[in-house]
Computed example of a mutant assay.
Amino acid sequence: MFTVRLRKGKEKAVRQLHPWVFSGAIENVKGRPENGDLVSVTDNSGEFLAYGFYNSQSRVAVRLLEWNPEQEINDEWWRNRIRKSINSRRELLNDSTDTCRLIFSEADYLPGLIVDQYADFLSVQILTSGIEKVKDILLDELNKLVKPKGIFDKSDASARSHEGLEASHGKLSGINPPEFVTVKENGVSYNVNISEGQKSGFYCDQRDNRRIVAGHAVGKRVLDCFCYSGGFTLNALKNNASEVMSVDSSALAIETLKQNVLLNDLDSIKHIAVQSDVNKQLRKLKEEGEKFDVIVLDPPKYAPSRSALTKASRAYKDLNRLGMQLLNEGGLLATFSCSGAVDIASFKQILAWAALDAGKEVQFIDQLCQPEDHPVRASFPEGEYLKGLLCRVW
């Protein structure tokens, strides 16, 4: 096996079971491993630390898999990891929910593999060269365990370019999904466009938060920003909101949302769908003197890395300032960040700055996070990316 020897003093994170070795921590590489090849990682004295797969083109040069030197990483090792991940989600799938994340990359000890289940179909993202090399084994095990009608590849993320991989998109096994696959989440039905939809097709990481926010929507006027296919909107309408306005810049998202309102037999008279840039729409609503009782702000990732934090903080502050100004006295703001680089303490500070600029007082009444099918590994806190705050605004 090829060997990666670390610089002196760079072994601490590996001993603490962190799954990443950055290129700058490497002293030398024995042999010439190809991208995705298994390597043995040692400290500077040559003592074994862990096994992982290597990529010379990535800033994360080694993604660690196994810390037991006696454990061989073979076909059965990979299959066992798939089984553990899927079996841990069994209780989430029931008569009212047939969609969830089955495998969550590093959190499930499978770095660069994301698998989402949408009823009878699986959507897969393969984002690392190591997973790409064992793709056939993993797909075979997924077919055996889940028995889907089809597995669809959504590996077109920019992360693949950092690993020297080209984008990949299309059927991997079984049949192609129809234009829309109907799934259920907490008793609400959704038409999911797996092939053309954002990310893997649907944001199942907000499952619990949609239910929590809907609990505050009874009889209220709700504004759902960055609504996508309508997760927060549909739950609010189902929970007897007096009116819901949904805003998204994507024409496909708005059209899918309208279909989802009809799919659930919800009152379309109580729903207003607006295709627009959210920030422009918020300013327009302010000029028109509109007010809401509950506002949801669920923007895309503003800070893809720590280098983008300053710019992202300004964007989050401006967005939340606009939202606060549209709330009735004592209204609720459900605001989220899916940027892993923004921790909850920083997010609270951003909300405090936004409140000052808006001339508002804010109380944090609940702290929201990603659900159990998006676990956070103790040794990999970077996996905790989704955080939300439910705020009372005065």
Rank of each mutant, 00 (worst) to 15 (best):
S168A: 14
I212W: 02
Q349M: 07
E66D: 11
L390W: 08
A251S: 14
D343Q: 08
N74K: 05
G197P: 09
S96T: 09
W77D: 14
S346F: 12
S168K: 10
R377T: 07
H216Y: 15
S45C: 09
H374M: 06
E166G: 15
D43F: 06
L322W: 12
R15I: 15
I365R: 08
S229F: 05
M1A: 09
A107R: 06
L65R: 00
H374L: 06
S58F: 12
S58W: 06
N80E: 15
W67N: 09
V296S: 09
L172C: 02
S268Q: 13
Q275C: 08
F347C: 00
L172M: 06
N240Y: 09
H162R: 05
F104Y: 14
R32M: 10
N279Q: 09
L6G: 09
K154V: 12
T99P: 04
N186D: 15
S23N: 12
S229A: 10
A315V: 01
E47S: 10
Q259R: 15
Q363K: 14
G219Q: 02
K84T: 12
V14S: 03
K317G: 05
G359S: 10
G330H: 13
W394E: 14
N87I: 00
I103E: 01
E255I: 03
I365S: 03
I82E: 00
Y51H: 12
V218H: 05
K154G: 09
I269Y: 13
V134D: 00
K147A: 15
G24F: 13
N87L: 04
E361C: 01
V62G: 07
D43V: 09
A345C: 01
R283A: 13
S161G: 03
F364C: 02
L333S: 03
R32C: 15
L237S: 01
L145F: 04
N28S: 14
S56D: 03
L165F: 06
L297M: 12
F152N: 07
N143G: 09
I212M: 07
Y51P: 10
E384D: 14
V247Q: 01
E106A: 11
L113W: 10
Q259M: 15
Q370W: 11
T128W: 06
N176I: 10
R7Y: 07
A355R: 08
V124C: 08
L266G: 01
F104G: 05
S189R: 14
